[in-house]
Design a protein around this nucleic acid. Structure first.
Lengths: 134, 134
DNA sequence: ATGGGGCTTCCAGTCACTGGAGGGTCAAGG
DNA sequence: CCTTGACCCTCCAGTGACTGGAAGCCCCAT
């Protein structure tokens, strides 16, 4: 299987697949012409990676998850620990963003948005701690 | 005012302040010894930048906001447009993360997390479109 | 043989910093 | 006067996870 077909079947761009080889996540064979020759199992690994990345796992998380995936004797607790940790990070990120959103939406609401120069958004950025607004 | 004092008063690390000079956001004078000499107005600009960055505005947004801040004839509509746009991006990001969180928390909930190898998290990553779970 | 697409490598850029090396400057204490 | 330690300077490299582009093979159909 050439890289193009793998790209199509996994939904990952060829560039990304090459990058994943660079950093050692997959190790495709090579044809005599130098083209990467992916086995079915490699394709599945890449699909796995694509899904894990969609869920926001970092590359290092993915590397660990992949190792666990390949290890039929792994303990599910190990996988769960990675996922829980990642979940906590996502939740923290959501809270941060919600705080930003709340502050910003207050500012946007209070701004007339006309052609006069008076603007509570700039006023706040200029004088107060933005996070205190709301 | 030396960089250290500005750093303390704005809460920005000296490295970041130097970086902001590099990319042309501030233009401090120089003492004869080569040290940066910040005026009060520069300090305020940096504080403004720090607050805008806290709200997640990109550097380019900050550059524009700063220009509007300095322009006493600006229209508040211009500021509001930038803020609204940014707000929309934050909201999109929140939705993405919430989707990830929902999928992940289902997976974590369904995983026994013991020393047996059976693991719904890996099973999902290996076979289904992760986003379809839930 | 020619054209077009697919494949290769390597280099550079993204974003917003951050770390570190190597070295100059300043003020206080001995 | 000298040393010490805190400050300041510049420049280079690295972060994460790609992405874009140049330059150049390879393969197949016409």
């Amino acid at each position: 299987m050439n890289i193009g077909e793998v790209a199509e079947r996994t939904g990952l761009p060829p560039k990304t697949i090459r990058y994943y080889e660079d950093i050692g996540l997959v190790k495709p064979l090579r044809d005599t012409n130098g083209y990467r020759a992916f086995r079915e199992s490699e394709m599945h690994k890449l699909a796995f990676l694509g899904r894990a990345r969609t869920l926001g796992f970092s590359i290092e998380d993915c590397r660990n998850l992949l190792a666990l995936w390949e290890d039929s004797n792994r303990a599910s607790a190990d996988v769960r620990a990675i996922a829980k940790d990642h979940l906590a990070q996502i939740e923290a990120k959501i809270r941060d963003l919600q705080e930003m959103r709340d502050t910003l939406s207050t500012l946007v609401r209070d701004c007339a948005g006309d052609d006069r120069p008076d603007c509570p958004i700039l006023k706040t950025l200029g004088t107060e701690t933005a996070a205190e607004q709301r």
